[in-house]
Amino acid sequence: MTPIVQARSLVKKFDHIVAVDDVSVEIEKGEVIVIIGPSGSGKSTFLRCLNALEKIDSGQIIIDKEILDTDAKKIHDIRLEVGMVFQQFDLFMHLSVLENLMLAQRVVRKRSRQNAEQIAREYLGRVGLADKADSFPAHLSGGQKQRAAIARALCMNPKIMLFDEPTSALDPEMIGEVLDVMKNLARGGMTMVVVTHEIGFAREVADRIIFFEAGKIVESGPTDEILSSAKHPRTMEFLSKVLK
């Protein structure tokens, strides 16, 4: 079976700084990957390359057998397959939670209002926000916002979900509710790539861990192997700090 995500020799530069330096990763369908590493190591940039929010300078990305190039139509098609959740939630401020979930379904998927609302309410129920449908983002807690953002991405029926530090902007007591939603999603068989510092989450649901530093993959392997017996000294040093 061909991997659902294939990234080959990706290079991404910002002016003269190389943010992603010759990175190759393959992800199988249903796999949950956790990317860890220090700040500024290029892990978020790598994630953003996967749905073309960043334009790569060289290399190749193949998602579900489609090559991601600069063609706008192709980018658009691939983004439909790839959902993304951001550190700052980025719910649309002027729309209610329900409308946030319905907007892209209506204008991109061209679903009817009724159909879109039905789907939106279903996902709101799954993330435990059925009663917040008519609230505005400003009136939600951070954890509720992030759960709504996850539901918003899921409404588009993506094959892959990307999470860019989804709990970093949350108060500690709200991290759990978001991770629970993500765990359920993982158990449901969703292909997920998660950039996070939550090693507990990784231990529980990740199939593989990738350790990034200075734009390169320093080490990657099955979760247990990396967590218990990392080979590279930088990985060991990083893990010893976050597990403390």
């Binding site: 929010l53 658009h76 649309f92 907007l103 588009m156």
Partner: peptide
């Protein structure tokens, strides 16, 4: 982030402006 979130949901630039940026 508003336009990035909209783009990641598959909207094109016009739809992002029309439905997300301009209304706000």
């Amino acid at each position: 982030g508003q336009s990035e979130a909209a783009l990641s949901l598959g909207m094109n630039h016009w739809q992002v402006d029309r439905h997300v940026i301009l209304p706000q």
